[in-house]
Amino acid sequence: MRRVFAVLLLPAALCAAAGCRYVTLDRATPQADAITDMHWLMFWVLGAVFALVLAALAIAVSRRSRAPIAGGKDPRFFAVAAATGVTCAILLLLLVASVVTGRAVSTPPEANALDIAITGHQWWWEVRYPAAVADDEVLTANEIHVPVGRSVRLHLASTDVIHSFWAPNLNGKKDLIPGRSTGMTFRVLRAGTYEGRCAEFCGYQHAHMGFRVVAEPPSEFEAWLESQRLPAAEPGDAARVHGHEVFLAGPCVNCHAIRGAGAFGRKGPDLTHLASRSTIAAATLPNTTGHLAGWIADSQRIKPGNRMPPNVLPSGDLLDLVAYLRSLR
């Protein structure tokens, strides 16, 4: 009996140890509400069915067998017929609930929905906020800011393999399929930071392909969007000026863009406002000076197989480069 309890408690203990970063039942959107309600409906209904079946089995096992009745109807006929009827009714109920939930999750958003284009790459997320004027477009990576209370419509695509967008607090999973456009809608009801992962195995570093959704009040969101539209900050001092030169002279510029600083690479994440993001390497490391320097010097030790080559730089160059990148707020 104690062992049974231990098995039942194991998931809860693991969850507590992991700090509960991904809790599907901690809902933050009407879409997640619908999924959670469906979850609890199925949990209680199927739990009750399980208990009833076990009880019936216990009775059947413990009761002494009786002699068959000669002639007339077998009284067990009614029990079997009733059980079949109830089973069909329950399955029908769950079917209807499932269809209703599916509709609630995929409801078209309101007219003023915010469009965000998400592109999956091995192994990071490109995030683009389209605008009528190309210069007003915002390009960032791995951190998605959304306004609270407004519908958000995600346009999902992939350039290499199939990925899957999954932020458990916000909605279900949705695949990003090369050559196809998929979509997802949600409306975040309370401010906060929600973690998400890639939920479809996509190669070596699938496990290190995370992202964050930052939900903030509309005014703060607009201010953030406005700040992201600006070109990169000018390097303020001699060290940062040198860091900028190192960036342009080395391999960084082949793949990364810094708007307003002469870097136009589009294969890696846009670094125009790198310092405004809370993590690097797709939510793998916190965005600090030390982690950034380690990542630039040898990202293959941190995330083996990722597309960024190791960079052997003189320590002075590396420090200036990191100082420059850390100034890109």
């Binding site: 695509a157 992939s158 350039t159 290499d160 393999v161 090369p178 050559g179």
Partner: peptide, 14 residues
């Protein structure tokens, strides 16, 4: 022609 049974880069969008 793929260089081996495992075509590594699979750049569908590119």
């Amino acid at each position: 022609a793929p260089p081996g049974p495992r075509q590594e880069h699979l750049q569908a969008g590119e």
